[in-house]
Protein backbone atom coordinates (compact mmCIF):
# COMPACT_ATOMS: atom_id res chain seq x y z
CA UNK A 1 0.00 0.00 0.00
CA UNK A 2 2.73 2.41 0.93
CA UNK A 3 4.31 1.90 -2.48
CA UNK A 4 1.09 2.99 -4.15
CA UNK A 5 0.62 6.13 -2.08
CA UNK A 6 4.27 7.00 -2.71
CA UNK A 7 3.63 6.40 -6.40
CA UNK A 8 0.60 8.66 -6.41
CA UNK A 9 2.56 11.40 -4.68
CA UNK A 10 5.34 11.08 -7.22
CA UNK A 11 3.15 10.87 -10.30
CA UNK A 12 0.67 13.57 -9.31
CA UNK A 13 2.51 15.72 -6.78
CA UNK A 14 5.63 16.31 -8.89
CA UNK A 15 3.88 17.57 -12.02
CA UNK A 16 1.51 19.70 -9.93
CA UNK A 17 4.48 21.31 -8.18
CA UNK A 18 6.10 22.13 -11.51
CA UNK A 19 2.87 23.63 -12.85
CA UNK A 20 2.50 25.66 -9.65
CA UNK A 21 6.04 27.05 -9.80
CA UNK A 22 5.87 27.89 -13.49
CA UNK A 23 2.47 29.53 -13.11
CA UNK A 24 3.96 31.69 -10.35
CA UNK A 25 6.95 32.60 -12.51
CA UNK A 26 4.74 33.48 -15.46
CA UNK A 27 2.28 35.43 -13.32
CA UNK A 28 5.00 37.48 -11.65
CA UNK A 29 6.87 38.05 -14.91
CA UNK A 30 3.78 39.41 -16.62
CA UNK A 31 2.90 41.72 -13.71
CA UNK A 32 6.10 43.56 -14.52
CA UNK A 33 5.24 43.81 -18.18
CA UNK A 34 4.80 47.37 -19.43
CA UNK A 35 1.29 48.69 -19.83
CA UNK A 36 -1.39 49.63 -17.31
CA UNK A 37 -4.53 47.48 -17.38
CA UNK A 38 -6.50 50.16 -15.55
CA UNK A 39 -5.71 52.78 -18.18
CA UNK A 40 -6.56 50.27 -20.88
CA UNK A 41 -9.96 49.52 -19.46
CA UNK A 42 -10.92 53.09 -18.61
CA UNK A 43 -9.25 54.85 -21.51
CA UNK A 44 -7.00 57.89 -21.30
CA UNK A 45 -9.70 60.38 -20.31
CA UNK A 46 -10.44 58.85 -16.93
CA UNK A 47 -9.75 60.75 -13.70
CA UNK A 48 -7.08 59.58 -11.22
CA UNK A 49 -9.87 58.82 -8.70
CA UNK A 50 -11.60 56.52 -11.15
CA UNK A 51 -8.33 54.72 -11.81
CA UNK A 52 -7.57 54.29 -8.13
CA UNK A 53 -11.10 52.99 -7.62
CA UNK A 54 -10.75 50.37 -10.37
CA UNK A 55 -7.26 49.40 -9.25
CA UNK A 56 -8.66 48.68 -5.79
CA UNK A 57 -11.53 46.78 -7.32
CA UNK A 58 -9.15 44.64 -9.38
CA UNK A 59 -6.87 44.16 -6.37
CA UNK A 60 -3.88 45.73 -8.10
CA UNK A 61 -2.80 47.59 -4.97
CA UNK A 62 -2.33 44.37 -2.99
CA UNK A 63 1.06 42.72 -2.45
CA UNK A 64 2.21 40.42 -5.25
CA UNK A 65 1.90 37.17 -3.31
CA UNK A 66 -1.65 37.99 -2.27
CA UNK A 67 -2.57 38.81 -5.85
CA UNK A 68 -1.07 35.54 -7.03
CA UNK A 69 -3.00 33.72 -4.34
CA UNK A 70 -6.23 35.33 -5.52
CA UNK A 71 -5.42 34.47 -9.10
CA UNK A 72 -4.58 30.86 -8.18
CA UNK A 73 -7.73 30.26 -6.16
CA UNK A 74 -9.70 31.89 -8.95
CA UNK A 75 -7.99 29.78 -11.60
CA UNK A 76 -8.76 26.57 -9.72
CA UNK A 77 -12.46 27.45 -9.88
CA UNK A 78 -12.26 28.34 -13.57
CA UNK A 79 -11.96 32.09 -13.10
CA UNK A 80 -8.89 33.30 -14.97
CA UNK A 81 -9.67 37.01 -14.75
CA UNK A 82 -11.05 39.40 -17.32
CA UNK A 83 -9.82 40.10 -20.80
CA UNK A 84 -9.22 43.79 -21.32
CA UNK A 85 -9.71 43.63 -25.08
CA UNK A 86 -12.84 41.48 -25.13
CA UNK A 87 -14.14 42.82 -21.80
CA UNK A 88 -15.30 39.33 -20.92
CA UNK A 89 -14.15 36.64 -18.52
CA UNK A 90 -11.05 34.91 -19.91
CA UNK A 91 -12.68 31.48 -19.57
CA UNK A 92 -15.51 32.48 -21.92
CA UNK A 93 -13.04 33.56 -24.57
CA UNK A 94 -10.86 30.51 -24.21
CA UNK A 95 -13.48 27.77 -24.34
CA UNK A 96 -14.43 27.84 -28.05
CA UNK A 97 -10.81 28.40 -29.05
CA UNK A 98 -9.56 25.48 -26.99
CA UNK A 99 -11.81 23.17 -28.99
CA UNK A 100 -10.30 24.42 -32.26
CA UNK A 101 -6.76 24.01 -30.98
CA UNK A 102 -7.51 20.52 -29.66
CA UNK A 103 -8.77 19.52 -33.12
CA UNK A 104 -5.62 20.91 -34.72
CA UNK A 105 -3.24 19.32 -32.21
CA UNK A 106 -4.98 15.94 -32.23
CA UNK A 107 -4.99 15.87 -36.03
CA UNK A 108 -1.27 16.72 -36.09
CA UNK A 109 -0.50 14.17 -33.40
CA UNK A 110 -2.16 11.45 -35.48
CA UNK A 111 -0.07 12.43 -38.50
CA UNK A 112 3.11 12.49 -36.43
CA UNK A 113 2.55 9.07 -34.91
CA UNK A 114 1.36 7.35 -38.08
CA UNK A 115 3.81 8.85 -40.54
CA UNK A 116 6.74 9.32 -38.17
CA UNK A 117 6.82 5.79 -36.81
CA UNK A 118 6.17 4.11 -40.16
CA UNK A 119 8.75 6.23 -41.96
CA UNK A 120 11.24 5.56 -39.19
CA UNK A 121 10.55 1.84 -39.30
CA UNK A 122 11.11 1.71 -43.04
CA UNK A 123 14.33 3.68 -42.68
CA UNK A 124 15.47 1.46 -39.85
CA UNK A 125 14.75 -1.87 -41.50
CA UNK A 126 15.39 -1.36 -45.21
CA UNK A 127 19.00 -0.86 -46.15
CA UNK A 128 17.96 0.06 -49.66
CA UNK A 129 15.54 2.82 -48.69
CA UNK A 130 17.60 4.14 -45.77
CA UNK A 131 19.43 6.93 -47.67
CA UNK A 132 16.17 8.27 -49.14
CA UNK A 133 14.42 8.15 -45.79
CA UNK A 134 17.22 9.98 -44.03
CA UNK A 135 17.30 12.63 -46.75
CA UNK A 136 13.56 13.09 -46.28
CA UNK A 137 14.02 13.32 -42.52
CA UNK A 138 16.83 15.86 -42.89
CA UNK A 139 14.63 17.99 -45.09
CA UNK A 140 11.66 17.71 -42.76
CA UNK A 141 13.68 18.78 -39.75
CA UNK A 142 15.03 21.81 -41.59
CA UNK A 143 11.61 22.93 -42.85
CA UNK A 144 10.15 25.56 -40.50
CA UNK A 145 6.40 25.25 -39.89
CA UNK A 146 5.70 28.75 -41.18
CA UNK A 147 7.46 28.04 -44.48
CA UNK A 148 5.75 24.65 -44.79
CA UNK A 149 2.42 26.39 -44.19
CA UNK A 150 2.94 28.81 -47.06
CA UNK A 151 4.25 26.12 -49.43
CA UNK A 152 1.23 23.92 -48.73
CA UNK A 153 -1.16 26.84 -49.14
CA UNK A 154 0.33 27.90 -52.44
CA UNK A 155 0.17 24.38 -53.86
CA UNK A 156 -2.98 22.82 -52.41
CA UNK A 157 -5.12 25.86 -51.70
CA UNK A 158 -4.15 28.52 -54.24
CA UNK A 159 -3.02 26.43 -57.22
CA UNK A 160 -5.09 23.26 -56.89
CA UNK A 161 -7.89 24.76 -54.84
CA UNK A 162 -8.45 21.57 -52.84
CA UNK A 163 -8.37 23.15 -49.40
CA UNK A 164 -9.33 26.54 -47.94
CA UNK A 165 -6.55 29.06 -47.31
CA UNK A 166 -7.61 30.10 -43.82
CA UNK A 167 -10.11 29.58 -41.03
CA UNK A 168 -10.97 26.65 -38.80
CA UNK A 169 -14.40 25.61 -40.03
CA UNK A 170 -17.38 24.41 -37.99
CA UNK A 171 -18.66 20.89 -37.40
CA UNK A 172 -16.51 17.79 -37.63
CA UNK A 173 -15.95 17.25 -41.37
CA UNK A 174 -15.68 20.93 -42.19
CA UNK A 175 -13.11 21.27 -39.43
CA UNK A 176 -11.08 18.35 -40.75
CA UNK A 177 -11.19 19.90 -44.22
CA UNK A 178 -10.11 23.31 -42.93
CA UNK A 179 -7.45 21.96 -40.61
CA UNK A 180 -5.74 19.50 -42.97
CA UNK A 181 -3.11 21.90 -44.30
CA UNK A 182 -2.47 23.50 -40.89
CA UNK A 183 -2.15 20.09 -39.26
CA UNK A 184 0.34 18.93 -41.89
CA UNK A 185 2.46 22.07 -41.58
CA UNK A 186 2.42 21.74 -37.82
CA UNK A 187 3.32 18.05 -38.03
CA UNK A 188 6.17 18.08 -40.57
CA UNK A 189 9.07 19.02 -38.29
CA UNK A 190 7.96 16.76 -35.45
CA UNK A 191 7.21 13.90 -37.82
CA UNK A 192 10.76 14.10 -39.09
CA UNK A 193 12.02 14.13 -35.51
CA UNK A 194 9.96 11.08 -34.51
CA UNK A 195 11.02 9.32 -37.72
CA UNK A 196 14.68 10.05 -36.99
CA UNK A 197 14.49 8.66 -33.45
CA UNK A 198 12.41 5.66 -34.57
CA UNK A 199 14.77 4.82 -37.42
CA UNK A 200 17.79 4.86 -35.14
CA UNK A 201 16.03 2.78 -32.48
CA UNK A 202 14.64 0.25 -34.97
CA UNK A 203 17.98 -0.08 -36.68
CA UNK A 204 19.71 -0.73 -33.39
CA UNK A 205 17.16 -3.28 -32.22
CA UNK A 206 17.14 -5.00 -35.58
CA UNK A 207 20.81 -5.90 -35.14
CA UNK A 208 20.31 -7.44 -31.68
CA UNK A 209 21.14 -11.08 -31.06
CA UNK A 210 17.65 -11.93 -29.88
CA UNK A 211 16.31 -10.84 -33.25
CA UNK A 212 18.65 -13.36 -34.83
CA UNK A 213 17.27 -15.97 -32.45
CA UNK A 214 13.78 -15.12 -33.60
CA UNK A 215 14.82 -15.44 -37.25
CA UNK A 216 16.63 -18.70 -36.56
CA UNK A 217 13.40 -20.05 -35.09
CA UNK A 218 11.53 -19.37 -38.31
CA UNK A 219 9.17 -16.75 -36.90
CA UNK A 220 7.20 -14.78 -39.51
CA UNK A 221 8.94 -11.46 -40.36
CA UNK A 222 5.89 -9.39 -39.43
CA UNK A 223 5.81 -10.96 -35.98
CA UNK A 224 9.53 -10.44 -35.53
CA UNK A 225 9.18 -6.81 -36.47
CA UNK A 226 6.24 -6.13 -34.19
CA UNK A 227 7.23 -8.18 -31.18
CA UNK A 228 11.01 -8.16 -31.17
CA UNK A 229 12.04 -4.99 -32.97
CA UNK A 230 9.36 -2.31 -32.62
CA UNK A 231 8.38 -3.38 -29.12
CA UNK A 232 12.00 -3.21 -27.96
CA UNK A 233 12.51 0.13 -29.66
CA UNK A 234 9.41 1.50 -27.93
CA UNK A 235 11.08 3.53 -25.18
CA UNK A 236 12.85 6.15 -27.33
CA UNK A 237 9.90 6.24 -29.74
CA UNK A 238 7.50 6.95 -26.87
CA UNK A 239 9.75 9.72 -25.59
CA UNK A 240 10.05 11.34 -29.00
CA UNK A 241 6.32 11.05 -29.69
CA UNK A 242 5.38 12.45 -26.30
CA UNK A 243 7.75 15.39 -26.64
CA UNK A 244 6.33 16.05 -30.10
CA UNK A 245 2.73 16.11 -28.97
CA UNK A 246 3.68 18.39 -26.08
CA UNK A 247 5.57 20.65 -28.48
CA UNK A 248 2.59 20.80 -30.85
CA UNK A 249 0.64 22.93 -28.43
CA UNK A 250 3.35 25.58 -28.53
CA UNK A 251 3.88 25.11 -32.27
CA UNK A 252 0.20 25.84 -32.79
CA UNK A 253 1.03 29.47 -32.01
CA UNK A 254 2.86 29.83 -35.32
CA UNK A 255 0.63 27.70 -37.52
CA UNK A 256 -2.61 29.21 -36.24
CA UNK A 257 -1.21 32.63 -37.03
CA UNK A 258 -0.09 31.54 -40.50
CA UNK A 259 -3.53 30.14 -41.35
CA UNK A 260 -5.52 32.79 -39.46
CA UNK A 261 -7.15 30.12 -37.33
CA UNK A 262 -8.96 31.46 -34.30
CA UNK A 263 -7.41 29.14 -31.73
CA UNK A 264 -5.54 29.45 -28.46
CA UNK A 265 -2.18 29.92 -30.20
CA UNK A 266 -3.13 32.86 -32.36
CA UNK A 267 -5.00 34.34 -29.39
CA UNK A 268 -1.88 34.41 -27.23
CA UNK A 269 0.03 36.33 -29.91
CA UNK A 270 -2.80 38.84 -30.31
CA UNK A 271 -3.13 39.21 -26.55
CA UNK A 272 0.57 39.90 -26.11
CA UNK A 273 0.41 42.63 -28.71
CA UNK A 274 -2.71 44.05 -27.06
CA UNK A 275 -1.16 43.76 -23.57
CA UNK A 276 -4.11 41.65 -22.48
CA UNK A 277 -2.14 39.86 -19.77
CA UNK A 278 -4.84 37.87 -18.01
CA UNK A 279 -5.37 35.99 -21.27
CA UNK A 280 -1.62 35.51 -21.77
CA UNK A 281 -1.19 34.12 -18.25
CA UNK A 282 -4.12 31.74 -18.64
CA UNK A 283 -2.96 30.36 -21.98
CA UNK A 284 0.66 30.10 -20.85
CA UNK A 285 -0.27 28.12 -17.78
CA UNK A 286 -2.54 25.94 -19.89
CA UNK A 287 0.27 25.18 -22.37
CA UNK A 288 2.71 24.44 -19.55
CA UNK A 289 0.15 22.13 -17.94
CA UNK A 290 -0.25 20.17 -21.18
CA UNK A 291 3.52 20.01 -21.54
CA UNK A 292 4.04 18.74 -18.00
CA UNK A 293 1.20 16.23 -18.21
CA UNK A 294 2.62 14.85 -21.46
CA UNK A 295 6.05 14.45 -19.86
CA UNK A 296 4.48 12.61 -16.95
CA UNK A 297 2.61 10.35 -19.35
CA UNK A 298 5.89 9.55 -21.12
CA UNK A 299 7.46 8.51 -17.82
CA UNK A 300 4.40 6.42 -16.93
CA UNK A 301 4.46 4.67 -20.30
CA UNK A 302 8.14 3.96 -19.87
CA UNK A 303 7.33 2.19 -16.64
CA UNK A 304 4.72 0.11 -18.36
CA UNK A 305 6.90 -1.02 -21.28
CA UNK A 306 9.91 -1.90 -19.13
CA UNK A 307 9.60 -5.31 -17.42
CA UNK A 308 12.51 -4.52 -15.09
CA UNK A 309 10.40 -1.95 -13.32
CA UNK A 310 7.19 -3.93 -13.68
CA UNK A 311 8.76 -7.01 -12.12
CA UNK A 312 10.33 -5.13 -9.23
CA UNK A 313 6.99 -3.50 -8.41
CA UNK A 314 5.16 -6.77 -7.94
Amino acid sequence: MRATTGGVARWIGGPCAIILVTSFVIYVALTFAPGDPVAQILGSRSSPEQRAELARELGLNLPLLVRYWHWLTGALTGNFGISTTFRQPVANILMPRIATTIYLVAYSALIILAVGISLGSVGGVSRRLRPYVSALIGFGIALPGYVAALVLVSIFAVYLGWFPTFGAGAGFLDRIWHLTLPAISLAIGWTAYVAQISAAAVREEEGREHVMTARARGLPPALIFRKHILRNAAAPIITASGLSVAGLVAGAVVVETAFAIDGVGSLVVKSVSAKDYDVVVAISVLIVAVFVVMNTLIALLHNIVDPHRKASDS
Binding site: I18, T22, A29, L30, P34, G251, V253, V280, S284, V288
Partner: peptide, 21 residues
Protein backbone atom coordinates in the same frame (compact mmCIF):
# COMPACT_ATOMS: atom_id res chain seq x y z
CA UNK B 1 16.72 24.09 -15.78
CA UNK B 2 13.98 21.48 -15.54
CA UNK B 3 11.48 24.24 -14.84
CA UNK B 4 12.65 26.12 -17.93
CA UNK B 5 12.27 22.81 -19.79
CA UNK B 6 8.66 22.66 -18.63
CA UNK B 7 7.85 25.84 -20.56
CA UNK B 8 7.84 25.40 -24.33
CA UNK B 9 10.44 27.58 -26.03
CA UNK B 10 8.08 29.57 -28.19
CA UNK B 11 6.00 30.44 -25.17
CA UNK B 12 9.03 31.85 -23.38
CA UNK B 13 9.76 33.92 -26.46
CA UNK B 14 6.19 35.18 -26.59
CA UNK B 15 6.18 36.12 -22.91
CA UNK B 16 9.58 37.81 -23.08
CA UNK B 17 8.63 39.86 -26.09
CA UNK B 18 5.55 40.91 -24.14
CA UNK B 19 7.86 42.08 -21.36
CA UNK B 20 10.47 43.76 -23.54
CA UNK B 21 8.56 44.77 -26.62
Amino acid sequence: LNIVFAIPGLLIAVILSALMG
